[in-house]
Design a protein around this nucleic acid. Sequence first.
DNA 1: CAATATGAGTGGCCAGACCACTTTCAAATT
DNA 2: AATTTGAAAGTGGTCTGGCCACTCATATTG
Lengths: 216, 216
Amino acid sequence: MNQSKRYLDIVKEIRDMIRQEKIKPGDRIPSERELAEKLQVGRSTLREALRSLELLGLIETRRGEGTFLSDHRNHQLVEVLSTFILQDNKSREDVWETRLMHEISAIQSICENKALADLRIWDSFKVKLQDESFQRDDFVREMMVLSGNRLSLKIWFLLHQYSGSPYSEEVAEDEKDLVYPVLDALENQQEEKAVQAFKAWSEWIEKRRMQNGDNS
Amino acid sequence: MNQSKRYLDIVKEIRDMIRQEKIKPGDRIPSERELAEKLQVGRSTLREALRSLELLGLIETRRGEGTFLSDHRNHQLVEVLSTFILQDNKSREDVWETRLMHEISAIQSICENKALADLRIWDSFKVKLQDESFQRDDFVREMMVLSGNRLSLKIWFLLHQYSGSPYSEEVAEDEKDLVYPVLDALENQQEEKAVQAFKAWSEWIEKRRMQNGDNS
DNA sequence: CAATATGAGTGGCCAGACCACTTTCAAATT
DNA sequence: AATTTGAAAGTGGTCTGGCCACTCATATTG
């Protein structure tokens, strides 16, 4: 039927081989020359399959050493495509909005989980806020991690990288009044309140960013 | 510095070239031989980059004709990633959660925009709901588009592909009761209500998916 | 005019050759 | 004997040039 696309067959064969041989993440898979011989294909064709899998983050190759099955729990689903996604959609607003969406969703997720609210962590951030060592990025990243959604964390991190970090500076004096309510609400599992406070804080930052000539 | 991974550079160069030359989806990109010449790389190396992009569904190649920027979504990405990754339940859950996050955010965004609520579109979906031609995917995609955040739309589409589409079937009878409230709330710009109704609907679907031994 | 043959251009695939790098292990040196 | 050295083997990274199968536009033929 579909005779073309030999390299796609190779992808499948490699997958099956990994299954059968019970190759675990981190293990080494046969060398390119071995595989080519075994599957009866040219080495360059085989490489087309391998490079594809590598770009997907499913395998990892190290020159001089070999090819290894990577831990695809850390798959780069988004990472790979991010350049393409972000490239033609350079709308900074979209990035900002989307990033905020993930942050807010993390807050909601955290508030729904009692165990997380009990953590001392919010207090520790309050302390940092006092002695001027508080940074928004640190705080938000902590929330993203706590939310438990690794995929969301990954997307957030990409957006964070892409949009730069105009917020990694320490908090301004009048900003503190916006941060405390967020911490308080989180501590008390007040979801609606936390979200609102966080939005207010974010809008304040957005406004400041507008004022300072923000450039990518 | 990192001299290896030439094919990754090629991926980037191709991306830049596409942007500069203003190549649109569906358009043809230069032949492999041309590109190899232009980028000063061997054809086989270039092909490694192209095959990778093809597996990602970003380009489409037709023997005898050429290589094209793909306009419609290629399912290779889904297929490959699922077979390699979908063993991890936590990953699947993350995908579902993240996808839902984007959908809900779209609803909120739509409700905040008066112009969108006035559209006849919700009515047209009601009609479809009656004559059994309603499909969840169509509806949600429409919402994602209307929300106006193209980045979110793209991410959503990826997740949609990735998590498969067990929802593209037509709606069940008892499902309709969950859908109407969503449409009503959207029409009336009742944000909170719309979100709640949508969540209820989604949970119903999630439950059904659990019951049917959903396996890829 | 219609059907057919041709040739140029394209992707699909392969074999063989270097290169750069890592590991290994035996020989040389201390 | 212990250490250093370096040569060899194995690996991925890349290039070249070739052949095949397919598509399409053109020219040729009936």
